[in-house]
Amino acid sequence: MEIAIGIMLCGCALGAGIAMIAGIGPGIGEGNAVAKACEAIGRQPESKSAVTSTLIMGCALAETTGLYALVIALLLILLAPGRFVDILVAAVK
């Protein structure tokens, strides 16, 4: 029983860690966006305000996939262990 619970908790923690690999995607995407925005401002300094507002909007949209991963990881760490252990205990009984 203890071993089963241990494996379960280990799986939850590992899953949370693996889920956060998704953080790579938004990181690269936002980096690209900021690089392009810097280029655009360098070329046309007078368009700074428009570029900045569009950039912030786009960055917030690009963040979404990372946030999905974050929500999944938080669920796996905070919520899932209790649920799974309850299910396991009920099944053994």
């Binding site: 917030a60 949209l61 999905y68 974050l70 929500v71 938080l74």
Partner: peptide, 16 residues
Amino acid sequence: VSMTLRHYGNILSGTV
């Protein structure tokens, strides 16, 4: 779903 998770995830991640 994406609208919900975007808003909620951002605020929650800040809190955490």
